[in-house]
């Protein structure tokens, strides 16, 4: 069963990608991905640039509305996502809890909708 691990990071997490905490930040992620791969869990996904780089588009009445943005102005912001293939929610939650963002921001786990 495929699950998305949606990574929500704080402003301080995003800053840690390039300040003096960067080595620790990236090392934690590298170790996490290595653990996933070592456990033989099929995974995919992408990391995203900081929310300041986001642009929101809507089309209303045939007109395109482009806005600076991330979509939601929340304390934690989407930092990336992973998909993993594990037997059930409990195992997905196990891997979500190990994800570095779980202890500094939040991680949302959702089953992937199977395509017919």
């Amino acid at each position: 069963m495929k699950f998305a691990i949606i990574i929500l990071e704080s402003a301080s997490d995003f800053a840690s990608r390039q300040n003096e905490r960067a080595p620790a930040y990236w090392e934690a992620w590298k170790a996490y991905m290595a653990a996933l791969n070592e456990a033989g869990i099929p995974n995919g996904g992408a990391a995203l640039q900081a929310p300041e780089t986001a642009t929101v588009v809507r089309v209303a009445d045939g007109r395109r509305l482009v806005q600076d943005g991330p979509y939601a102005d929340t304390k934690e912001q989407l930092g990336g996502f992973l998909t993993i293939d594990v037997p059930d929610l409990d195992q997905a939650l196990h891997w979500a809890a190990l994800c570095p963002a779980a202890s500094s921001g939040a991680v949302e786990v959702r089953p992937v909708l199977p395509m017919m």
């Binding site: 069963m1 699950f3 037997p87 059930d88 929610l89 409990d90 089953p111």
Partner: peptide, 14 residues
């Protein structure tokens, strides 16, 4: 049904 909650008795550790 949809979230993948296992229909099992959890492992002793939990």
């Amino acid at each position: 049904r949809d979230a993948g909650i296992p229909f099992e008795v959890p492992v002793r550790r939990d």
